[in-house]
C-alpha cells in the first residue's frame, strides 16, 4: 500500500464517523415535561443536542412554544446519559437500545 503522507491526514469531516452506533442507552425527551431550559444542550459533550423551531414538538403549555425546542441527533449521541442526569424536570428518559434502531 502506498501512502501520500507518512501519517494519516483525514480529508473528510469528523462527522463522517457516525458514533451514535456505540450507544447502549438512548435518551428520549418527553416533550410534555420539557420546559426548554437548554441545560441538556449546555451539558451535552458531543454536542448532539440542537435547537429546532418551537412548534415542531409539543410543550407543557402553549407559552413554551414561543421558545425553540431541543432535539437529539441520534447519529452522534453516544448515550452517555449526562443530559438525563442534568435535566431538572426529569424529562429525559434513558431507555435500552433494542438494536433495531428504534
Amino acid at each position: 500500500m502506498e501512502f501520500e503522507f507518512p501519517t494519516p491526514l483525514t480529508t473528510v469531516p469528523s462527522t463522517a464517523n457516525k458514533t451514535g452506533v456505540w450507544r447502549t442507552f438512548r435518551p428520549v425527551i418527553n416533550y410534555e415535561k420539557c420546559i426548554r431550559c437548554y441545560i441538556c444542550w449546555k451539558f451535552c459533550p458531543e454536542p448532539a443536542i440542537s435547537f429546532v423551531p418551537g412548534d415542531k414538538y409539543p410543550a407543557p403549555s402553549e407559552a413554551f412554544l414561543k421558545r425553540d425546542a431541543v432535539e437529539i441527533n441520534y447519529d452522534y449521541c453516544k448515550g452517555c446519559g449526562i443530559c438525563a442526569n442534568e435535566c431538572p424536570k426529569g424529562a429525559i428518559d434513558f431507555v435500552l437500545e433494542r438494536g433495531d434502531g428504534q
Partner: peptide
C-alpha cells in the same frame, strides 16, 4: 484542510501506517 490524528476504525490502515 485536513484532520491530523483522527479516529480510524480497525479495518482502516492503522496497521499499514505502523508497518510503513
Amino acid at each position: 484542510p485536513a484532520g491530523h490524528g483522527s479516529l480510524i476504525m480497525p479495518e482502516g490502515p492503522v496497521m499499514e501506517y505502523r508497518k510503513a
